[in-house]
């Protein structure tokens, strides 16, 4: 089974990512499905399937925030690691809408983004295939000090200086 970083440890990834263009029936198991699909299917559960949404970088969360709060986990998709919209999406989910569940970064995510992702409220990181997860773990703590407030720390440094 593929592995991912969750919290500060490496665990099995039980969730299968269903791409936006999948045709035909969904498989059994724990499935991350596109947001629109999840909204369509979430109130009609199928035996043997657990569904959670993944949100693409250009999708807005505001209109569906109330529904999202009930999701067992939310994944935010990074089509490329240069696309930083997911950082804002995460902060909105955590800080504006108070989402408390697992928030997972998926897609093209690299080790050197882990610290920033964590600060924006992600707590699970499904890194690009081939990443050395043991080495990547260390990047969660690239910095021990920060200037500005973010999801991980609502008080900016200047309020404690």
């Amino acid at each position: 089974m593929p592995r991912l970083i969750k919290g500060n440890v490496i665990v099995d990834n039980e969730w299968q990512l269903i791409p936006a263009d999948l045709s035909g029936d969904l498989p059994q198991g724990k499935l991350l499905v596109p947001l629109a699909k999840w909204l369509e299917l979430k109130d009609a559960p199928v035996e043997g399937q657990t569904l959670a949404p993944w949100i693409d970088s250009e999708e807005e969360v505001e209109p569906v925030a109330a529904e999202l709060l009930s999701a067992p986990l939310i994944a935010v998709h990074f089509p490329t690691f240069m696309d930083g919209r997911g950082f804002s999406t995460a902060r909105l989910l955590r800080e504006r809408f108070g989402y408390q569940g697992e928030l997972r970064a998926v897609g093209y995510v690299i080790q050197d983004q882990l610290f920033f992702l964590k600060r924006c409220g992600f707590d699970a990181f499904d890194l690009r295939e081939g990443t050395d997860l043991e080495a990547a773990l260390a990047s969660l703590n690239d910095f021990t000090v920060t200037y500005q407030a973010a999801t991980d720390n609502p008080e900016p440094l200047f309020r404690k200086r």
Binding site: G84, F87, F143, T146, Q148, A150, F158
Partner: peptide, 16 residues
């Protein structure tokens, strides 16, 4: 200087 510190490693705005 206040802006410099706020913007340094701002986690949300590193991939604009």
């Amino acid at each position: 200087e206040i802006i410099r510190q706020w913007s340094t490693f701002h986690p949300e705005f590193a991939f604009l």
